[in-house]
């Protein structure tokens, strides 16, 4: 039930983000979601794409520092308090969230949350016990 995310190291220089997009575009890879964490010197671009392994290898071929990281995709109701209801059980189980980002789907009433935790297995267990919907990678990549 884990989802593969691509993480890319980017120096804060003009055109690097565009270049990532071009490389993926040329390879026919579609970006489903993205988030960027940045400092004054560099950024880490995190992407959910339809073909993660291929995306990672084409980016590396073009000289980018890219790696595949495993994250969990949660489906939460797109309503006030929806996110908190999904995250509370994790917090109660002592599972630390390293980062997360969200995107809203086109045709459903649910929002998707991508969560990176230290212990993925434990997190999945907690989410299952609390009936929080975890999205499979197949479904996510084909959204």
């Amino acid at each position: 039930m884990v989802v593969k995310q691509i993480s890319i190291f980017l120096e804060n220089k003009c055109g690097r983000m565009i270049r990532v997009s071009e490389v993926l575009g040329e390879a026919g890879i579609n970006v489903r979601a993205l988030s960027i964490a940045d400092t004054s010197d560099f950024g880490i671009l995190r992407l959910i794409v339809d073909r993660p392994d291929e995306a990672c290898s084409v980016l590396r071929e073009k000289g980018f520092m890219a790696s595949v990281t495993e994250v969990i995709a949660l489906e939460v109701p797109d309503t006030p308090g929806g996110l908190a209801r999904a995250l509370t059980p994790l917090q109660e189980a002592g599972i630390n969230i390293e980062y997360l980002y969200a995107f809203v789907q086109k045709r459903t009433a649910d929002a998707l949350i991508l969560v990176r935790v230290e212990n993925i297995e434990a997190a999945l267990q907690v989410l299952r016990e609390n009936n929080i919907s975890v999205i499979s990678s197949e479904r996510l990549y084909s959204l």
Partner: peptide, 15 residues
């Protein structure tokens, strides 16, 4: 230059 072994996808790791 960043290498594969050094790369962390967390800001905290790189800092």
């Amino acid at each position: 230059e960043l290498t594969e072994q050094m790369f962390s996808d967390k800001v905290k790791g790189l800092e």
